[in-house]
Design a protein around this nucleic acid. Structure first.
Lengths: 237, 237
DNA sequence: CAAGACACGTGAGGC
DNA sequence: TGCCTCACGTGTCTT
């Protein structure tokens, strides 16, 4: 049932083959530690040496060690079905594969969550040094040479109040999209009052509250649309 | 080196003990599948049956199967140090424990990230039905009976423009904190224009952009402070 | 007794 | 040499 030590008979060991006399009284001297004293203390008539050879106890130790390790393995694996020496390994393999798969899923999920958070932190930093002022805390390399394909999926610009605007747009998940947007707003001499980023399945939804010195609202709206469109499709110089 | 099958000599098997004649030509009949034909096809002079007993091939199959499983286990575990039959199990145990620990960390991290995201989605919903209008889409149970201890760690209210305010406050991580805040802003007849939530280590940092019909800015500020303070310490009726 | 699983004793081979 | 690991044959015990 539970891998109990056999402790059975051993009619084949080093001296039983030569003299098969002692069929009883065979259950210890090796179950203890290793090579204790002679239990029979036989007067050694024909040089029968009951002290077990070293290699014997060594082998037994090896086996016990391995069995112990197997138990340890079993104790780490949940949902053990059988105590079977082979089933233990099989269950361990399944468990490891399951863990690996799960870890992969968790990490992808975490990277997804972390990305939107990281993006939110960019805006958070901009708000941190002055509550209502954009700050060029990040150099951003104004003339960035590479052009990442930012797909702006939707874009809405609506004026609210006299000099404020709400820009809501969604794009695919790329960090460069946000950086590019920051450049745009800085170049347009705007102030980001507040910014919202929500990451749905595969896209990022942005909502910006903008303040500008420009009094002509429609013109600012066109500027913003033009700048975003230029980033969206940078094929026209 | 790599656990190669012994394939050595077997001077002790079922018939060698009785007749020790065949010392050569001993290398197969069991390496194949199981109990093939008699290789010697000896005319059975003295009933020497070279067909291996079933229990022998069974045992060999069992051993091979177990060894195969051990190999499979080894193949799933990275960073294998020794090919040792025992080291394989040991490494597997360490790997499993490492995986379990890592999974626990990942899950805690994910729950942490998910919490702030969940909170952000609350505000996102409020913005969704009308871009610049608060909406009572959640009933919120106006007379909520239980009083969760919301620890408002910091609170700043500054006026910007004529009827807009920026409220920034941090509190401990409780979802009820946000719901309570929504109730406050609704009761004060305010409009949430934009909202930001950033979750740092153990606290939530909120930044609200507010619009109100009240023209007296300082009075609105006092109202907001009073309402938040009331929630923070609801011991005065 | 089958069939399956273990532990044991034992010889071979590798450092 | 000697230790260590292995595969094998074998007997016992539990299904």
């Amino acid at each position: 049932m539970d891998l109990t030590e056999g402790e059975g008979e051993y009619n084949n060991y080093w001296e039983t083959r030569t003299f098969l006399e002692a069929e009883v009284l065979r259950s210890s001297w090796i179950t203890g530690e290793a090579s204790s004293q002679c239990y029979f203390s036989s007067s050694s008539i024909v040089a029968t040496s009951p002290t077990p050879p070293k290699y014997l106890v060594t082998e037994k130790n090896r086996r016990e060690k391995l069995k112990e390790k197997l138990y340890a393995l079993r104790s780490v694996v949940p949902n053990i079905t059988k105590m079977d020496k082979a089933s233990i390994i099989k269950d361990a393999i399944n468990y490891i594969q399951q863990l690996q798969e799960q870890e992969k899923m968790l990490q992808s999920e975490i990277s997804e969550l972390e990305m939107s958070h990281e993006l939110a932190d960019i805006f958070y930093d901009m708000e941190q040094d002055d509550v209502l002022q954009t700050s060029p805390s990040r150099p951003l390399d104004p003339g960035s040479p590479f052009i990442p394909s930012i797909e702006v999926l939707e874009l809405k610009v609506l004026a609210v109040g006299n000099k404020n605007f709400v820009i809501s747009f969604t794009c695919n998940k790329k960090r460069d999209a946000l950086i590019k947007m920051c450049e745009v707003f800085e170049s347009l001499n705007l102030k980001i009052i507040t910014a919202n980023i929500i990451s749905s399945s595969e896209s990022l939804s942005h909502t910006l509250f903008i303040e500008t010195d420009e009094l002509d609202g429609s013109r600012v709206k066109e500027q913003i649309e033009a700048a975003i469109a230029e980033i969206d499709a940078p094929r026209n110089p």
